[in-house]
């Protein structure tokens, strides 16, 4: 008796009897008659677009220089009254240098989801940010941490470096490694399930703060 695998494959092949036997997949034409990017401005303009689009979907956007970052993060954590802050194993050393009185929990792989449910904030870097869609992509590298780290806490501060900003989805995909687990984030958690009315804040972090670093 044929197993399900062979049966499914046999049915697929029988269904495709009309496809010429010598046609290779690439022989079937796919015209990519679309733009690689819609935003074509200078890097500064693209960064502005990113900020606008992030804000449009209710992310809180901040912009500062690298030197101002520790001060800004300290202020944001203080404003959120964050006592416990989770961070990935390789968050750049000086980012939380000014955050006095904050307990920093560095994830070495031992933080459980229940523990993370009780931290106040999480601070991470990112892999890529997409201006046209207002999207930040995390690829779980050591400056971003495991996926649950930026998921369970209710307040996520994500720092975007200028060289990480691209205009379009297409450009972002080219920079990303599909073998890594990726999380594309466009604003805070949201739902439109009640009367198709958008509400921010369900299961993911209800507050997303994006810090865009300037050159």
């Amino acid at each position: 008796m044929m197993g399900s695998r062979e049966l499914v494959l046999a049915r697929v092949r029988a269904a495709l009897a009309d496809v010429p036997r010598d046609e290779a997949p690439e022989d079937f034409p796919v015209d990519r008659d679309y733009l690689d990017a819609h935003a074509t401005g200078s890097p500064a303009e693209v960064a502005d677009l990113l900020a606008d689009n992030l804000a449009d979907y209710r992310a809180v956007v901040h912009r500062c220089s690298a030197a101002e970052l520790p001060g800004l993060l300290a202020r944001l954590l203080a404003e959120h009254r964050s006592g416990d802050v989770a961070v990935p194993p390789a968050l750049p050393g000086d980012w939380l240098a000014d955050s006095e009185g904050v307990r920093v929990l560095t994830d070495d792989g031992s933080l459980t989801a229940s523990r993370l449910d009780r931290v106040d904030s999480v601070v991470t870097a990112c892999a890529v940010a997409v201006a046209e869609t207002g999207t930040i992509v995390l690829d779980a590298k050591p400056d971003q941490g495991r996926r649950l780290l930026s998921l369970v806490p209710d307040h996520h501060i994500c720092v975007v470096r200028p060289e990480q900003v691209v205009a379009s989805v297409a450009q972002a995909l080219r920079r990303l490694d599909p073998s890594r687990p990726l999380t594309w984030i466009s604003g805070p958690s949201a739902t439109s399930d009640i009367e198709l009315d958008r509400v921010e804040g369900v299961h993911g972090p209800r507050t997303l703060e994006a810090v865009l670093l300037a050159d």
Binding site: A140, R147, L182
Partner: peptide
Amino acid sequence: AERMNPYTSTWTGTA
């Protein structure tokens, strides 16, 4: 009707 939905996850096997 969004430019991008809030979350997209991609994964390849196990990590």
